[in-house]
């Protein structure tokens, strides 16, 4: 079960100052916020949308 388009359509970065849509990373292993650059990991097809479990990555 991959991350569905229906979910991607409603999913946003949970940081209150962001709340912008997140995008699947190139390797498909995370969801990245374009504003704060946090990458939320996807584990066993479960996106872990918890702020302090995300890693901030440099702008690509």
């Amino acid at each position: 079960m991959a991350v569905s388009q229906e979910l991607l359509d409603i999913l946003v970065c949970p940081v209150p100052e962001c709340r912008v849509p997140v995008k699947l990373t190139a390797d498909g292993k995370g969801l990245k916020c374009s504003k704060c650059h946090r990458v939320y990991p996807i584990q066993d097809d479960i996106p872990i949308m918890i702020v302090d479990q995300a890693k901030i990555e440099a702008e690509s």
Partner: peptide, 16 residues
């Protein structure tokens, strides 16, 4: 469907 996240910071758009 089931997602992982915090109730105090829901990862969904407004008025969904």
């Amino acid at each position: 469907a089931f997602d992982c996240g915090e109730a105090e910071a829901l990862p969904y758009s407004d008025a969904t």
